[in-house]
Amino acid sequence: MKLTTKQLTLCAMLAAMALALSYLENVFPLSLAIPIPGIKLGLANIVTVFALYALGPVQALLILLARCILGAVFAGNMNALLFSLLGGVTAMLVMIILSRLRWLSVYGVSVGGAAAHNCGQVAAAILTLGNTAPLYYLPVLLGVSLFTGALTGLVAACLFRALAHTDLMKG
């Protein structure tokens, strides 16, 4: 595939934003309320949702990988890589599928993505620990994902509205 300079710049910017959002999450760690280490709200999914619609699945995936790897490198924590990768990629796959269902709005897509994100993270916790104990928290996390998904959807919808009349999206 060919990336135009504009697209490449956009990708880099979005990756940087996603990275910033991941850091923001650490300020309000979800794990205070739900004590599973490594569990995140998934704010960076806003970027994934946006990139998915604005640029396409391949670009969105690239941004996701860049965000996860850079995030883990900066944090110096390779444990976190598995968590963000599994969470992020699962969310991504579910959102790619859901976004093809044209009748779903951005809210439905991001709620599905958030739920998948949490499933992926629980899977990562199970893998890391070699124990199914974290499954105990999945129902709670799925409940939480309804709210985080709605939040992500709202932010993404605002973004699209604001950017619809700019030429940012134009090739």
Binding site: L30, A33, V144, L146, F147, L154
Partner: peptide, 17 residues
């Protein structure tokens, strides 16, 4: 409904903190 959900999510966040 969305607004309500959002408000709830934020409230939940605050309680957690």
């Amino acid at each position: 409904l969305t607004v309500l959900l959002l408000a709830l999510a934020m409230l939940a966040g605050l309680t957690a903190c």
